[in-house]
Write a protein that binds this DNA or RNA. Structure first.
Length: 254
DNA sequence: ATGGCAGGAAGCTCCTGA
C-alpha cells in the first residue's frame, strides 16, 4: 500500500500535474492540502477517470484538504472534535483497514503573530484528537503539511531559521508530542540523502539551490510502522513549470 | 532590515503562504 501527501497549492492550477503524477506513481492513498477549491468545484470527475475516489473539505481561496483513494473510504470525519474552526484543515477516513488522517497545520506566519498562537492551540488539539483516534484505530497514518521542520537536519540553514516560525522550539515540541503518542516519522525509518526537503520557497532560486525545509510528513502508528518498507520525497514535480512549492512525500507499506 | 515568488479575489492592489 502506497501512501502519499502533497500540498498542491491550488488544485485548479495543479490538476494536470496531479493527474500525470497519479498515473506515474499509482499511489493507493493521497492526502492533498491547500486545494483552495470549494466543494462544488472539486474535480471529482477527472479524478474518477484517473481511477480515484475523492473525499474533500474545501473553501474558497484558502486551505482545503482531500483524500484520494483507489479503494472506497469509510468513517469520514471532516473536523477536529472540540475545536470550532471555519478553516478546512482536516479530513479523516478509513481506507483498506488503515485510518488515514489528512492535515493542513496552520502556517503561523511569525512567532509574534496571533496566527502562531492559533497554530499552537491547533496542534494541542490535534494531539488530543489523535489520542482518541489511536484508541479506536491501531493502524493509523497521519499525513500532511505540518508546517514544522522537526530537526536541524530538516532545515537548509538551522542558524538562519533558529527561533523562527516553522522551526521554533514550541512548534518542534508539539511535533515531538505527536511522536510521544507512539507515532513514527516514516521518512526517518530509512536511510535518506542529506539535505532532504519537501518545501522550497518560490523566490531566490531556492529549489535549484536546495534551500528548503522538510515540513511535510507521514507519521505512522506503532502497529503500522512495522509495515513500512520505504519512504522518499518525490522532487520531480517540483522541477516542472509552474509547480507547487511543495513536493510529495511517499511511504510504502507492506 | 527587506525583498524576492505564487495563487486567489477582486480589479488597476492586497492578503496569505512558508
Amino acid at each position: 500500500m502506497k501512501l502519499a501527501t502533497w500540498n498542491v497549492n491550488s488544485l485548479n492550477v495543479r490538476l494536470a500535474h496531479l493527474l500525470d503524477w497519479l498515473g506515474r506513481e499509482q499511489p493507493d492513498v493521497v492526502c492533498l492540502q491547500e486545494t483552495k477549491t470549494e466543494d462544488a468545484n472539486f474535480p471529482a470527475h477527472e479524478l474518477r477517470l484517473a481511477g480515484y475516489q475523492a473525499l474533500f473539505a474545501g473553501q474558497k481561496a484558502y486551505n482545503g484538504v482531500a483524500i484520494l483513494s483507489r479503494e472506497a473510504a469509510s468513517d469520514v470525519v471532516a473536523a477536529m472534535p472540540g475545536f470550532a474552526d471555519d478553516q478546512k484543515r482536516v479530513l479523516a477516513a478509513t481506507v483498506g483497514g488503515v485510518r488515514v488522517l489528512c492535515t493542513y497545520v496552520p502556517n503561523g506566519e511569525s512567532v509574534e503573530s496571533e496566527k502562531y498562537r492559533y497554530k499552537l492551540s491547533w496542534l494541542a488539539n490535534l494531539r488530543i484528537w489523535l489520542q482518541h483516534e489511536l484508541k479506536a484505530y491501531a493502524q493509523l497514518a497521519l499525513l500532511g503539511d505540518y508546517n514544522i521542520a522537526p530537526e536541524e537536519r530538516d532545515v537548509h540553514d538551522p542558524r538562519l531559521w533558529q527561533g523562527r516560525v516553522l522551526f521554533s522550539e514550541p512548534e518542534r515540541a508539539a511535533f515531538r508530542g505527536l511522536l510521544g503518542l507512539g507515532l513514527k516519522d516514516s521518512f526517518r525509518l530509512f536511510d535518506q540523502p542529506e539535505r532532504s526537503f519537501s518545501w522550497w520557497d518560490y523566490r531566490m532560486n531556492a529549489f535549484k539551490r536546495n534551500l528548503g525545509l522538510r515540513i511535510d510528513h507521514i507519521l505512522l502508528s506503532q502497529d503500522l510502522s512495522g509495515r513500512a518498507r520505504g519512504s522518499h520525497i518525490d522532487k520531480t514535480v517540483r522541477a516542472l513549470e509552474r509547480p507547487s512549492d511543495h513536493a510529495p512525500v511517499i511511504t510504502e507499506l507492506q
